Simulated assay, not measured.
Amino acid sequence: MADMDTTVTVIDACGMAKVPALLLSRPGKGKSSLIRGLAAAQTIPCEVVLGSQYEPAEIGGLPYLDPNGSGVQREAPAWAKRLVEAGAGIVFLDELTTVPESVQGPMLTVVLDRVVGDLQLPDAVRVVAGANPPDQAAGGYDLAPPMANRFCHISYEPTVDDWLHGMSTRWRTLPLSRAVVASTERMSATVSAVMGFIHHRPDLLDKFPQSPEERGRAYPSERSWDMLARALAYVRADDQPAIQTLAMGLVGEGAGMEFVQWLQHADLPDPEAVTADPSLVDWAHERPDRVWAVLNGVVTLAAERGTVEAFRKAWKPLGAASDAGVKDFAAAAARTLATFRPANARIPAEMRKFEALLKSAGLLSEDAA
């Protein structure tokens, strides 16, 4: 269970990463009050959508024939139009476990693609949902796997102190978020960490649950690991409660806890520091999963920056790893890095160590230095 501070932080981090968040608790725990309070604190609108009150066509947009000859269009509901007009806000999909699967289907595009009818919601609009356990919801339904796998599931259990504070302020004052603005360096580090773990445990990349109950919760998939890599970039590297909540909320308790434990023991170096000084890593004696993670962090950082200088510098750690005998991992990273070569970038000396490989892959066609 996440405390109030961590809950606010994770919702904020998910919002900045464009990852939908789902608050889960027993009835009467104040989920709606919390979300409305977050919106009020940011002075943005909060549109509450009760999917159980909608027909499938209303969520997806009611079809109509455009009199101007553009064919069939889909009319978005009023709440979506208000958010588009405001340019920011929160879509709060309340009582999600009371929504039948026939309505959950059209809600999928709202949750992940942020499309309602023919309207694209602005980037500053965040998607948050609230739900009780299906057996404690009115006419409860398990979440369909495609819906469940689109959310970061946050088990919400406010303490007595949280409730007392909320009552005293009439829920107008909430803890400050610990989320941070993601830097290029932090993003490359979180991407490389997730990739390193999956290299270590490839069987956890996509593990569809066996029981219907588990399919309505967080579970590992290519999508949820990608969302985890993005969301982690918006929390500090030392914020263990937020990291654990994100990991368990996106890829499930088992895979999430294993990832957190691996991350703590991996103690991965900063990709920027390794790019500047490849000797920081003992390439010949390092664990394979760490080598894989570090090299991919270096490549991701160069790709994110997209400059000629970043491209040229990134080849130094790859060359050092190859010279130390870690040729397979270095070659895999080289293939990826070569695809991000800026048009005006000349070939650095370290890149020539992979010349035959890159030519055979069609990624290198010139010999000019």
Rank of each mutant, 00 (worst) to 15 (best):
T43A: 15
A332R: 06
P27Y: 11
V91P: 00
G256A: 08
V160P: 03
G28S: 11
V294F: 12
A255H: 01
D270P: 03
M195T: 01
S70R: 11
V260P: 00
K29D: 02
W315K: 06
M227H: 13
N296W: 09
L232M: 13
K81Y: 06
G37R: 00
V191I: 08
M195R: 09
W283Q: 00
T173Y: 13
H199L: 04
M107S: 03
G362I: 03
L50P: 10
R312A: 14
G256E: 15
P134H: 06
D3R: 12
A293V: 02
A13R: 10
V274M: 14
A2D: 06
A343S: 11
T159G: 07
E85F: 06
G105M: 11
V84P: 03
V299Q: 01
D323K: 00
A368N: 05
A148N: 04
K207M: 12
G139T: 11
A39R: 13
R172Y: 04
Y141P: 00
E366K: 09
G30S: 08
C46K: 01
R36G: 01
P269F: 10
A343G: 03
K353Y: 03
M147F: 04
S211A: 08
P122H: 04
R201A: 10
A144Q: 15
Q136Y: 08
A80R: 06
A349M: 12
K29Y: 10
V19S: 13
V260C: 15
D66N: 13
V103Y: 00
S322A: 04
E350C: 05
A273D: 13
A361E: 09
V260W: 04
K327L: 03
R305A: 05
A334V: 04
G252F: 13
D226T: 04
R290K: 11
V291P: 05
I198C: 02
I11T: 12
S365W: 03
P241K: 02
L164E: 06
L250D: 12
A321E: 14
L337T: 02
W79R: 09
P278W: 00
F340I: 05
G69N: 13
A361F: 13
G249E: 14
W171M: 08
D142L: 14
S322C: 04
L205G: 15
P56R: 00
V251L: 11
G71I: 13
T159Q: 11
P77L: 05
A229V: 13
E95C: 08
F208N: 15
A39D: 08
A314H: 14
A189V: 12
P134L: 09
G216W: 03
D270C: 09
F151H: 06
A349P: 02
Q120S: 09
S221P: 08
A13C: 14
A144W: 05
P100R: 00
T307N: 12
A231V: 14
V103E: 00
R346F: 09
E85I: 10
L24T: 09
D282H: 12
Q42Y: 02
V91D: 00
L250M: 05
G306Y: 14
Q104L: 06
T43Y: 06
R236A: 11
A2T: 05
L363K: 02
G60C: 05
R290P: 01
R290L: 01
A131F: 05
D267Y: 03
L364A: 11
